[in-house]
Write a protein that binds this DNA or RNA. Sequence first.
RNA 1: GGAGAGAUGGCAGAGUGGUCGAAUGCGACGGUUUCGAAAACCGUUGUAUCUGCAAAGGUACCGGGGGUUCGAAUCCCUCUCUCUCCGCCA
Length: 424
Amino acid sequence: MLQVNYIRENREKVVKGLLKKHFHRAEIAITEVLALDDRRKQTQQQLDESLAEQNQIAKEIGLLMKEGKKTEAEQKKTRTAELKNSSKELGEKLTEIEKSLIQLLYTIPNVPHESVPEGKTADDNVVMKQVGEMPSLPETALPHWDLIKKYDIIDFDLGNKVTGAGFPFYKGKGAKLQRALINFFLDRAEQAGYTEIQAPIMINEDSGYGTGQLPDKEGQMYHATEDNLFLIPTAEVPITNMYRDVILEPKDLPIRHAGYTPCFRREAGSWGAHVRGLNRLHQFDKVEIVQIAQPENSYEKHEEMSEHIQSLLRDLELPYRVLKLCGGDISFNAALCYDMEVFSAAQKRWLEVSSVSNFETFQANRLKLRLKLPDNKKVLLHTLNGSALALPRIVAAILENNQTEKGIRIPPILVPYTGFEWID
RNA sequence: GGAGAGAUGGCAGAGUGGUCGAAUGCGACGGUUUCGAAAACCGUUGUAUCUGCAAAGGUACCGGGGGUUCGAAUCCCUCUCUCUCCGCCA
């Protein structure tokens, strides 16, 4: 959620940025925000005045009562009755205005960083770099959904039976590979200075609002209505919400956390031929990295996170590229976002395995996550996160790219974690 | 699941209707003292929002929401959470 004061002071910049994000009603929405905010202030002021008078009279009555002047006290009560009525009306009006304002703000996306390229769709994203050699596979190469059957390591049919589509079972070396990847990612994050977190995988409503999954994207989350809890779509949600309503000091920063969790996404309506196998699941494993940084250096941290993620891909020997998302493709919350894609050689497709974003103050504003400066002023902090990494597509690429006649070769860096060199 | 207790400022902990935004203690910060430190002493020390160049002032907030009252941290209702005991249990 954008700050109203920021909008007010940077109106042109905000509108321009929102248009880059293809938020076409930017001008209208901003005008309305400012108008609502003016009305809010005006009403608040009227209410405050009314309440101030009431408080004043109440004090006077208190004094009169002490002195035993009951009649005079009774007289004062008439005026209070009037004031109470007007306060009530003003209060209701204020609540209504505030509600409209918040609702409107919820519909306005974050302003993109100036380096975000113009563009409408994923085709307009800018390839920043491409690393690694593209494997050349024989004609007989299989896509991962065939490989997992051949070696009996991941079972979708069992998942269908026990839970439903998109909830596969990992078996034997398939299960061990999962565990190896998680441990590898966590160890590397720890080496890079991230404190490991084991977070709850269900969150409450407040947390959903805090990081922006609510109110708009509730359809993406599984909802346990009995207890009004949501299964997390990413560890970003519980980890970032650790800092909801928190005021930090410069010495606490930057904060670096890494957490492994399963992630749950309903993915309503997004199924099709291009999401076969491991390409899209309802439940998957992911190690997430989160940083909380000072506004003046958050973009350095963003680069740092991007570099960390890339180092994982290089060590796994996967060919990858880094995209800078264009205005039209970048997410609602993000100011800047890089996507990391690995090449899955049998599908001959680039698969998104990580997304690293700087949200600037967009989440912090909802979270009320602030920094207390030496002069006691409070400013909103910047939040960042990235996948490091999401497992299924990494697994898909490893399986496809490393397939040989004698089996699937495990990348050497993982062998200490898996305990085996081949899936055969 | 049953019974009971509770939720107050960074922490501890008073406060049961009228200068209570809230005693006191601890912590933190600044100062005096000291070669330096400790101790002692003095002072400062919540958040949000509005008016204002500022100084200053208004309003709201004692778990959340609602109510009673001229006036509520204090009374009533309700929700949430925490703790203790019993039951069940990885």
